[in-house]
Design a protein around this nucleic acid. Sequence first.
DNA 1: CGAATGATATACT
DNA 2: GTATATCATTCGA
Length: 196
Amino acid sequence: MKLTREFYIRDNVVEIARDLLGKVLCSRFDGNLTKAVITETEAYAGVADKASHAYGGRRTKRTEPMFGPGGVAYVYLCYGIHHLFNVVTGVSGTPHAVLIRAGHPSVGETVMLKRRKRPTVDASLLGGPGSLAKALGINTKLTGTSLLGRQIWIEDHGIRFAESSLVIGPRIGVDYAEEDADCPYRFVATLDGRFS
DNA sequence: CGAATGATATACT
DNA sequence: GTATATCATTCGA
């Protein structure tokens, strides 16, 4: 079943990042349905988090979707090449977000392979935030799009990961965030308990 | 290991 | 309005 508004507007963004593991991220563009099981997430804790684009209450045209109510997409271009997909959480005014970093293909593998220009399904197909967004057809034009609509949404398929199969640690690529770079805001689900 | 690649934020004139 | 540094990364050598 599709996640509802109540899931997204909770105030604990770290808890939501943890809860998103095993949920299924879905998209449908031009009739092409794709779904991916989320296996890696990172929390970005609003104005108090130096790693967040909204740190210190910085509110610009780019970060505007994060300041709205939870349950919308925040997509932006990174390194001039990659489109990164985030889930905005919390009530209006709290710019919390969860970066979806990796997933496992579930539906629409053929379309994903075509978008990624790759011959076969392997771990690298959805193996990083830029790759995952590209495979699902997500681009910066979708920033601000509701996750309760018909283009992008998240479903609960009842997948649960054992506590022992989770790896929790510091986030990736946020060295610029000083002391906040070490916060344990990254969640990885390893399918067999090993670090991947 | 390092180039690719462009929007964005910030600091200027 | 213009300039420039920076970046929540990826792929190929």
